[in-house]
Protein backbone atom coordinates (compact mmCIF):
# COMPACT_ATOMS: atom_id res chain seq x y z
CA UNK A 1 0.00 0.00 0.00
CA UNK A 2 1.43 3.40 0.90
CA UNK A 3 4.43 2.09 2.79
CA UNK A 4 6.86 3.23 0.09
CA UNK A 5 5.96 6.91 0.52
CA UNK A 6 5.98 6.44 4.26
CA UNK A 7 9.41 4.84 4.20
CA UNK A 8 10.78 7.61 1.99
CA UNK A 9 9.59 10.20 4.49
CA UNK A 10 11.13 8.18 7.29
CA UNK A 11 14.48 8.06 5.52
CA UNK A 12 14.43 11.82 4.93
CA UNK A 13 13.74 12.52 8.62
CA UNK A 14 16.45 10.10 9.77
CA UNK A 15 19.11 11.44 7.43
CA UNK A 16 18.34 15.03 8.32
CA UNK A 17 18.66 14.49 12.03
CA UNK A 18 21.73 12.28 11.59
CA UNK A 19 23.42 15.11 9.69
CA UNK A 20 22.42 17.71 12.24
CA UNK A 21 24.11 15.54 14.85
CA UNK A 22 27.26 14.88 12.80
CA UNK A 23 26.68 11.15 12.67
CA UNK A 24 28.96 8.79 10.76
CA UNK A 25 26.36 6.08 10.76
CA UNK A 26 22.82 5.44 11.92
CA UNK A 27 22.62 2.09 13.69
CA UNK A 28 19.08 1.91 15.10
CA UNK A 29 15.74 3.59 14.51
CA UNK A 30 12.76 3.35 16.85
CA UNK A 31 9.27 3.99 15.51
CA UNK A 32 5.92 4.13 17.25
CA UNK A 33 3.15 2.75 15.12
CA UNK A 34 -0.40 2.56 16.35
CA UNK A 35 -2.57 -0.43 15.52
CA UNK A 36 -5.04 1.90 13.81
CA UNK A 37 -2.47 3.57 11.59
CA UNK A 38 -2.69 0.81 8.98
CA UNK A 39 1.06 0.60 8.49
CA UNK A 40 2.53 -2.86 7.96
CA UNK A 41 5.94 -3.30 9.63
CA UNK A 42 7.10 -5.91 7.15
CA UNK A 43 6.61 -3.73 4.14
CA UNK A 44 8.27 -0.73 5.78
CA UNK A 45 11.21 -3.04 6.50
CA UNK A 46 11.15 -4.30 2.90
CA UNK A 47 11.26 -0.81 1.38
CA UNK A 48 13.75 0.33 3.99
CA UNK A 49 16.28 -2.30 2.95
CA UNK A 50 16.06 -0.99 -0.61
CA UNK A 51 15.98 2.75 -0.27
CA UNK A 52 18.47 3.10 2.59
CA UNK A 53 21.23 1.50 0.50
CA UNK A 54 24.15 3.83 0.01
CA UNK A 55 22.99 6.26 2.71
CA UNK A 56 24.41 6.70 6.21
CA UNK A 57 21.35 4.87 7.45
CA UNK A 58 22.05 1.73 5.46
CA UNK A 59 21.75 -1.39 7.61
CA UNK A 60 20.19 0.52 10.49
CA UNK A 61 17.90 -1.75 12.48
CA UNK A 62 14.26 -0.72 12.61
CA UNK A 63 12.56 -1.21 15.98
CA UNK A 64 8.79 -1.12 15.79
CA UNK A 65 7.06 -0.01 18.92
CA UNK A 66 3.54 -1.30 18.22
CA UNK A 67 0.93 0.63 20.17
CA UNK A 68 -2.40 -1.12 20.72
CA UNK A 69 -5.74 0.53 20.01
CA UNK A 70 -7.05 1.35 23.47
CA UNK A 71 -10.61 2.60 23.70
CA UNK A 72 -12.40 4.25 26.59
CA UNK A 73 -16.13 3.93 27.20
CA UNK A 74 -17.61 7.33 28.01
CA UNK A 75 -20.68 5.67 29.46
CA UNK A 76 -19.20 3.31 32.09
CA UNK A 77 -15.53 4.32 32.09
CA UNK A 78 -14.23 0.89 31.01
CA UNK A 79 -10.96 0.82 29.06
CA UNK A 80 -10.60 -1.94 26.51
CA UNK A 81 -8.38 -2.93 23.62
CA UNK A 82 -9.62 -3.26 20.10
CA UNK A 83 -8.34 -6.50 18.59
CA UNK A 84 -9.32 -6.99 14.97
CA UNK A 85 -12.45 -5.03 14.52
CA UNK A 86 -14.29 -2.24 16.19
CA UNK A 87 -16.72 -3.38 18.90
CA UNK A 88 -19.03 -1.57 21.34
CA UNK A 89 -17.99 -1.41 25.00
CA UNK A 90 -17.62 -5.03 26.20
CA UNK A 91 -18.96 -4.04 29.61
CA UNK A 92 -22.09 -1.99 28.88
CA UNK A 93 -22.43 -2.26 25.06
CA UNK A 94 -22.37 1.52 24.67
CA UNK A 95 -21.10 2.96 21.41
CA UNK A 96 -20.21 6.20 23.13
CA UNK A 97 -16.46 5.60 23.07
CA UNK A 98 -13.25 7.49 22.47
CA UNK A 99 -9.92 6.34 21.10
CA UNK A 100 -7.08 6.78 23.62
CA UNK A 101 -4.12 5.29 21.74
CA UNK A 102 -3.50 3.49 18.48
CA UNK A 103 -3.28 6.33 15.96
CA UNK A 104 0.44 7.06 16.55
CA UNK A 105 2.74 7.18 13.64
CA UNK A 106 6.12 8.70 14.46
CA UNK A 107 9.88 8.39 14.74
CA UNK A 108 10.85 8.36 18.40
CA UNK A 109 14.63 8.28 18.32
CA UNK A 110 17.66 7.04 16.45
CA UNK A 111 21.03 5.70 17.57
CA UNK A 112 24.00 7.12 15.75
CA UNK A 113 27.76 6.55 15.72
CA UNK A 114 29.97 9.61 15.77
CA UNK A 115 33.65 10.34 15.27
CA UNK A 116 35.82 8.49 17.81
CA UNK A 117 37.34 11.64 19.32
CA UNK A 118 33.98 13.22 20.00
CA UNK A 119 33.62 14.07 23.67
CA UNK A 120 29.88 14.62 24.21
CA UNK A 121 29.24 10.91 24.28
CA UNK A 122 26.11 9.47 25.84
CA UNK A 123 25.65 5.75 25.53
CA UNK A 124 22.25 4.25 25.98
Amino acid sequence: MHELSVTESLLAIVIQSAKENHALKVTDITLSIGALSSIIDDSVQFYWDHISKGTIAEEAILHFNRIPAVLHCLNCDTEFTMEDELVPCPNCKSINIEIITGEEFQVDHIEIRKEENNTDETTS
Binding site: A18, A23, F105, I110, E111, I112, R113, K114, E116, D120
Partner: peptide, 12 residues
Protein backbone atom coordinates in the same frame (compact mmCIF):
# COMPACT_ATOMS: atom_id res chain seq x y z
CA UNK B 1 30.70 5.45 20.34
CA UNK B 2 26.98 5.53 20.15
CA UNK B 3 24.57 8.29 20.88
CA UNK B 4 20.82 8.39 21.08
CA UNK B 5 19.10 11.27 19.32
CA UNK B 6 15.53 12.03 20.32
CA UNK B 7 13.36 13.00 17.39
CA UNK B 8 9.67 12.43 18.10
CA UNK B 9 8.39 13.60 14.76
CA UNK B 10 5.39 12.47 12.79
CA UNK B 11 6.65 10.41 9.87
CA UNK B 12 4.55 12.27 7.32
Amino acid sequence: MKQRVEIVKRIL
